[in-house]
């Protein structure tokens, strides 16, 4: 039995690590969705965090904690710069700006020498341990639990429901949207740093538009009514391709089919919050 568990863990520990990282990314987009804003830049923020943290440990020999912190701070700072002008407007402007931003980041990674260009960064030291992932995830869950029933969480829900009505309640809508976006970028950056230190290898291709959409799918599939939704969504979407391995070459098609069915029959996501009515 113990032997079985050991070999199971050996085979699947990377999958488990990936589930945790994808969970963090799903939360990073959830916090902007909770303000009614769509960010397509979270893959890019993850990339900035991954490269920053990796360069800190590789070139500066910085302690892992410091590297992760830097990997969170830089994307958050960049998010403040992009967010401050675009989030003053209501509507789809953040989606448009982050869509472009994601491309810019990818091309920058491809062309500057410190990130290794198209070759990427090789030999990132393996520093991420299981307890790091649990710790970060634990802190995030605590944060979202506290946010939920606080005045800040309510203000965000109000903005999502009706931005104009929220503003005449005295809620500073731009302030909330910008901070939610920056906190999301911070979370994505930390997730990127953690990810970089167990995959050992970074390439600009990993942080492109496709992955930005994947992150969005995590949240939408799970449901955006509560933060548990994105966590469930990301877990299912990370495990499913592995579970479907037995059907061989058609697994991605089946994967897509399941997604379509979920969207048709559970338009609000898998986890829906039901209030009394």
């Amino acid at each position: 039995m113990i032997e079985f568990l050991m070999s199971f863990w050996q085979t699947y520990n990377t999958l488990f690590y990936t589930i945790m990282v994808h969970g963090m990314l799903a939360l990073s987009i959830y916090i902007t969705l909770a303000c009614g804003q769509l960010s397509l830049g979270n893959a890019a923020f993850m990339g900035i965090g991954a490269y920053t943290a990796a360069l800190f440990t590789m070139k500066l020999n910085a302690p892992f904690g410091l590297a992760l912190l830097a990997g969170g701070m830089l994307p958050a700072f960049v998010a403040l710069i992009i967010g401050a002008p675009t989030l003053r407007l209501s509507g789809v402007y953040l989606a448009m700006a982050t869509l472009g931003f994601g491309e810019v980041v990818r091309v920058v990674f491809l062309n500057i020498s410190i990130t290794g260009g198209s070759v990427g960064l090789n030999g990132v030291p393996p520093k991420t341990e299981l307890w790091h992932l649990f710790l970060v995830m634990g802190v995030l869950i605590y944060f979202f639990l506290k946010l939920k029933n606080s005045r800040f969480g309510r203000a965000m829900e109000a903005i999502r429901e009706d931005e104009v009505a929220a503003s005449v309640m005295g809620i500073k809508t731009t302030w909330f949207k910008v901070w939610a976006f920056a906190i999301g970028a911070f979370i994505a950056g930390i997730a990127g740093g953690l990810n970089a230190h167990f995959t050992f290898f970074l390439s600009p291709r990993e942080y492109g538009f496709d992955f930005a959409v994947d992150i969005l799918t995590f949240a939408i599939l799970g449901g955006t009514g509560t933060f548990w939704g994105p966590l469930v969504g990301s877990t299912i979407l990370t495990i499913m391709p592995e579970m479907l391995r037995f059907i061989g070459p058609y697994r991605l098609a089946l994967n897509g089919l399941i997604l379509v069915l979920v969207v048709i029959y559970l338009p609000n996501g898998i986890i829906t919050v039901k209030k009394k009515d």
Binding site: R151, R154, A155, E157, A158, D162, A165, K276
Partner: peptide, 22 residues
């Protein structure tokens, strides 16, 4: 507002609490 703009998915209590933000 003329066209009602309550926070539809929140409870009545949460609507009023959101109003108390300041």
């Amino acid at each position: 507002f003329q066209n009602i703009r309550i926070f539809k998915e929140l409870s009545l209590l949460e609507n009023v609490l959101a109003g108390m933000h300041c």
